[in-house]
């Protein structure tokens, strides 16, 4: 038990787990109506789309890449979904399926530029970040908003099944899928290997570029799915949908212990990252003093930033302390052959 605890505590995600528990306990006491099914539903609804993006961002970062374009792609897919349903009068399921196809294609563009032309992911997705958003704005001429979606479709954004909002179930499905992919399949284990050592992976016979391409296409598909959920929740499709979501998704992933250099990270950690940010930002708004002052959102981003920096600094500090301690111990041991 003692060693199990020690091993658990040694993991960076362990600290985050205790942060999450502390948040929940704190907001239960200090917040109003925090422990209610309505609030849980709110947290899930408000973070489902960012959460989905974080889940597919995780394998990308694990390979040592990054995708800055997912938020813009969410906006583009929302607009294209609106064009399909409103201008081309498509049935909802067909429009949704085609939108997922568009997402896959857009992810494919990122993948091709990164794996075929070997351009750095940061630059490629910085380009498509503007490109996708620009396309969305061009389609809507910056002003057009698609509204009046069918009640059955809007239900996807509002209704609950067994107490949990529908998008929550969708999120859980994706989470299980990604967790199995990354941790339980040989296919997905390649992501970590690639991030740890791309050269080594190639020598080991892994199809490095194909695996990397897969992560970006997957991100495109899930960004399209998040766009549909977003549209259902807000009952409108507009070009500015999902602005800034890419950075919030990256925050959740990095907070959850995935190294930005790749090779290190778990899906469980990402889930903890998503949850601790979601609980923090929602809970703050339920504390009477903060709600009355109307500074919930501002304090939310401030504390999320502080949490991220503390978590990263704390992890690095703990590591360097451990290194120093082990070095001191080895210094203390008698070393007869030192002469310089």
């Amino acid at each position: 038990m003692n060693t199990f605890l020690k091993r658990l505590l040694a993991r960076p995600e362990a600290i985050l787990f205790f942060v999450l528990v502390a948040e929940i306990v704190f907001f239960s006491v200090a917040g109003r109506n925090f422990n209610t099914s309505d609030n849980v539903a709110n947290i899930v609804r408000h973070s489902a789309e960012i959460g989905m993006l974080a889940l597919v961002m995780m394998p990308i970062i694990l390979t040592g890449g990054i995708d800055l374009s997912v938020g813009s792609l969410l906006g583009l897919c929302a607009v294209i979904f609106g064009v399909f349903t409103h201008e081309w009068k498509m049935a909802m399921p067909l429009a949704a399926a085609l939108t997922l196809g568009v997402g896959a294609m857009a992810g494919g563009v990122n993948a091709a530029l990164i794996t075929v032309l070997r351009l750095p992911p940061l630059i490629v997705t910085l380009g498509t970040f503007s490109l996708f958003r620009g396309l969305a704005e061009a389609i809507t001429k910056g002003t057009m908003t698609y509204r009046d979606f069918s009640p059955e479709f809007i239900a996807l954004g509002r209704e609950r099944w067994m107490g949990l909002p529908l998008q929550g179930w969708l999120f859980i499905l994706i989470a299980i899928g990604i967790a199995v992919l990354v941790h339980r399949t040989t296919f997905g284990r390649a992501f970590r290997a690639i991030g740890f050592s791309p050269e080594g992976s190639r020598y080991a016979g892994l199809p490095v570029q194909r695996r990397i391409a897969f992560t970006y296409v997957l991100a495109g598909i899930v960004a399209a799915l998040a766009a549909i959920v977003f549209t259902a929740r807000l009952r409108q499709a507009r070009a500015d949908a999902g602005t800034g979501y890419e950075l919030q998704a990256i925050t959740a992933v990095v907070l959850g212990g995935t190294s930005i250099f790749g090779g290190v990270g778990t899906v469980g950690g990402t889930l903890l990252g998503i949850a601790s940010v979601a609980v923090l930002t929602t809970g703050l708004k339920l504390i009477p003093a903060i709600a009355l002052a109307g500074i919930g959102s501002e304090l939310g981003s401030l504390l999320t930033g502080a949490l991220l920096i503390l978590a990263l600094a704390g992890g690095t500090l703990a590591k360097s302390l451990a290194v120093r301690r082990s070095r001191r111990q080895s210094h203390a041991a008698p070393k007869p052959t030192i002469t310089t």
Binding site: L8, R11, E13, F17, L20, V21, I24, S28, R32, N33, N35, T36, S37, D38, N39, V40, I43, G163, A179, H183, T266, V267, G268, G269, L271, L272, A275, V279
Partner: peptide, 21 residues
């Protein structure tokens, strides 16, 4: 273990669920 702990945390929120005031 991390996957399970995150599920546990989620369960914790839902477990102390009470009707909205």
């Amino acid at each position: 273990s991390t996957f399970l702990t995150s599920l546990l945390a989620f369960a914790l929120v839902t477990a102390c669920d009470k009707k909205s005031d």
